[in-house]
């Protein structure tokens, strides 16, 4: 019996859950970035390029419009991630601020413990957002 050739993996089935990290220069920006990458690795969502939102890159904007859920992770109260999304017209998204988790800018090393704390919160927020969508 011959096996049918596999069709290429199709991305038509489900809208993605997108994660935008501020990925800022400070330690909390690094934690936000690492957490977004870990959430992606474990399948909770897909990290996407916040710079593409700021740069108004068509493919990134249109993909974000089609997302099932959006999570923005900001390291500090400047909320650059949230503001970038809002400036581009996005209003329905979850927002996670590391400062609200007690992680202070300049005093929060990018340790696995800090990253895991953000991953746990991010996972929950994404699940809630997708469930309520």
């Amino acid at each position: 019996m011959t096996e049918e050739p596999k069709k290429p993996c199709c991305a038509c089935d489900a809208a993605p859950k997108l994660i935008f990290a501020c990925s800022g220069a400070a330690d909390v920006g690094q934690v936000s970035d690492l957490a977004a990458r870990k959430l992606t690795a474990e399948g909770a969502g897909k990290m996407f390029c916040l710079a593409g939102i700021g740069g108004r890159v068509g493919g990134i904007l249109e993909t974000t419009k089609a997302a099932a859920a959006i999570l923005a992770i900001d390291g500090c109260p400047l909320d650059c991630g949230r503001k970038t999304l809002e400036e581009a017209g996005f209003t329905r998204f979850e927002h996670l601020r590391l400062n609200d988790l007690g992680m202070e800018k300049g005093k929060t090393a990018a340790t696995p413990d800090h990253v895991d704390q953000v991953v746990g919160r991010g996972r929950t927020r994404l699940a809630e957002a997708a469930g309520g969508a």
């Binding site: 038509c12 493919g59 419009k65």
Partner: peptide
């Protein structure tokens, strides 16, 4: 193209619609 969901349509290299 920055597209994570298909199908998508681009006109002259600019993505206009996704999903």
């Amino acid at each position: 193209f920055g597209v994570m969901m298909t199908p998508a349509l681009a006109v002259d290299g600019e993505v206009k619609l996704v999903g």
